[in-house]
Amino acid sequence: MAAKYLNKRPKHLNLFKINQPLPAIVSIMHRISGVILFFPGIPLILLGLQMLLDTPESFEALQTFFLNPLVKFGLTCFIWLCLHHLCAGIRHLALDLHCGVELAKARASSNWVLIVSVSLTLITAGVLIW
């Protein structure tokens, strides 16, 4: 009787109302960063590489372009997306090898993904961009 009643309960999860656990947040960010790296990420990387190598004029145009603080900020965000995708990917490989699949470890490693990717972004951006 109880089982029958439970089965009839509506299945409706409002993703914006339930509290997402940390691994879920890291996972969806891995996905979102992947999609952004695909577009506009890939064409922008290729455009940058082309301007870097095409002619001395295009190289200069690229250098001037990166002097703009807004562009610098955009590049910093882009580096963060790359590094988050990288760190979350490394975590994924570890999970594939059955390392850290216990709940406590999975939560801790998610936390580390966020911390390490943000720190590496700040270091890289600080040294190379700003």
């Binding site: 996905r31 992947g34 999609v35 790296l37 695909f38 890939i42």
Partner: peptide, 13 residues
Amino acid sequence: ALFWHAWVGVRNV
């Protein structure tokens, strides 16, 4: 490698 990786990922999404 990047394009192949992107294809598998975007296809999954």
